[in-house]
């Protein structure tokens, strides 16, 4: 599965895996959105630790989920992305909208 979700209280963790490109992002988006809207979620954690590859489609995915959570009055973060993906994300400035957290929750 490219996305597995787990709920802990009101915190939903979506663990993404494999490659995120324009082709794969659509299913990932709908899977996450379904889990967010079906549960009382106040915080969405996008776990990127198992993502091997990401192009700008991944930025769109993070932007969209961040927007969704803000509409719901909640928050969104990205955790544990590989170094190269941090670079792609920072290029877009998405880290200003949605914090990128490394090991131990340190903001990257």
């Amino acid at each position: 599965m490219p996305v597995t979700t787990s709920l802990d209280g009101a915190v939903l963790t979506a663990r993404l895996s494999g490659d995120i490109d324009h082709f794969t992002a659509a299913d990932m988006r709908s899977e996450i959105d379904r889990a967010v809207t079906m549960n009382p979620v106040s915080e969405l954690v996008l776990d990127f630790s198992a993502v091997n590859f990401m192009d700008s489609s991944g930025i769109g995915l993070v932007m969209g989920r961040s927007k969704l959570m803000s509409e719901l009055g909640g928050k969104c973060s990205v955790c544990d992305p590989p170094a190269y993906i941090v670079k792609v994300m920072k290029l877009s400035g998405i880290d200003k909208l949605c914090p990128i957290l490394g090991e131990g929750g340190v903001r990257l």
Binding site: H22, D55, S56, S57, I59, G60, L61, M63, V88, L91
Partner: peptide, 14 residues
């Protein structure tokens, strides 16, 4: 509406 970030060329250039 498709959540295209509009960053394709920026990424290629960078």
């Amino acid at each position: 509406e498709e959540e295209r970030a509009g960053l394709g060329f920026s990424v290629m250039e960078s």
